[in-house]
């Protein structure tokens, strides 16, 4: 359909005059005191307004052995926003997401080039530790996959292994409240998480991720395995969460992207075609291919 090849304008330059302003919650809005395992005393989280992008991705290339899955992605992700990654199957959106917390390096035979900065720090630098990256950048997967343990242990485990010294009970409650699951499970915290419904399991996985207190939460089609009611619950949760977190979400569902995201990036065949504020991208797409995709003419 579309004649405009995304390869023509590489590297794609998303012209996003981001409306990131101070009325959005600043990163220090949530309690930092609980992350007492790492920060030195001179950490001053509230020093600057959050105009700097949370994530900078610069000329990112990724290969699964010979398959060149990402071909030079450059984009920024704004703090305390929901950024949606959309595109047809195999366009590389999940791969891109998994590059953001170094999950892809668990797959053997993969190669990565380019840089990804979180708060200005290169997460692929020689001396950067993947565990530290994943504590900062959490992830929720497509299929709800709670550990075969109790609800309480599911939430507490990540904090425990990361040396959390605070009140674990309070942390579990706060995380479950943030994931809008507390009221449903508060009387069965010590029963198996596998007894929960699919939607509850997914919100438990969100709570589990929040308990580690990341800055960024990545979500890989978090509602695709859920029914409509559970989906809307998860979506509400996501909208709530952006007050405190930067969220990057992969979705194949364009209604979902337009409902919950502030910015949307459209990927096609391993390249970023267009990245813009969501309402702009859906109503006035710059590229023909984006328009073709969002209007359902292909994909």
């Amino acid at each position: 359909m579309s004649t405009n090849e995304p390869t023509d304008d590489a590297p794609p330059s998303p012209p996003a005059p981001s409306p990131a302003s101070a009325d959005e919650a600043t990163p220090d809005a949530r309690p930092q005191s609980t992350r007492d395992d790492t920060p030195p005393a001179d950490a001053s989280p509230s020093a600057e307004p959050s105009v700097e992008p949370k994530l900078n991705i610069d000329d990112l290339h990724f290969w699964y052995s010979d398959n060149h899955a990402l071909q030079g992605i450059t984009m920024d992700v704004q703090p305390n926003k929901v950024t949606a990654l959309i595109g047809p199957s195999g366009c590389g959106k999940s791969t891109l997401l998994r590059c953001l917390n170094r999950m892809n390096e668990l797959i053997q035979g993969t190669t990565l080039e380019g840089t990804i900065l979180v708060d200005g720090q290169d997460i692929y630098a020689e001396d950067t530790d993947p565990v530290m990256v994943r504590r900062r950048v959490g992830m929720v997967f497509q299929k709800p996959n709670p550990f075969p343990k109790t609800i309480y242990k599911n939430v507490a485990w990540g904090a425990e292994i990361n040396g959390y010294t605070g009140d674990v009970d309070a942390l579990v409650e706060r995380s479950l409240r943030q994931a809008a699951l507390w009221d449903e499970v508060k009387d069965q915290l010590h029963t198996s998480a596998l007894n929960l419904s699919g939607g509850q399991q997914q919100r438990l996985c969100i709570a589990r991720t929040l308990a580690v207190q990341p800055d960024v939460v990545l979500m890989d089609e978090p509602a695709s395995a859920l029914d409509p009611i559970a989906t809307s619950k998860v979506e509400e949760t996501i909208t709530e969460l952006k007050k405190d977190y930067t969220i990057v979400i992969v979705t194949h569902n364009m209604q979902q992207a337009s409902r919950i995201s502030d910015e949307t990036a459209f990927l096609y065949m391993g390249r970023l075609v267009e990245m813009n504020p969501t309402d702009e991208l859906f109503t006035r797409p710059e590229k023909d291919r984006t328009e073709a995709y969002v209007t359902g003419r292909f994909g």
């Binding site: 917390n101 999950m103 668990l106 565990v131 530290m132 994943r134 504590r135 959490g138 992830m139 997967f141 299929k143 996959n145 550990f147 485990w157 990540g158 292994i161 990361n162 996985c205 589990r208 991720t209 580690v212």
Partner: peptide
């Protein structure tokens, strides 16, 4: 998925 989700929580 079990390994992945544990790694994603920052586990060694």
């Amino acid at each position: 998925g079990i390994r992945e989700s544990a790694f994603a929580l920052g586990a060694t």
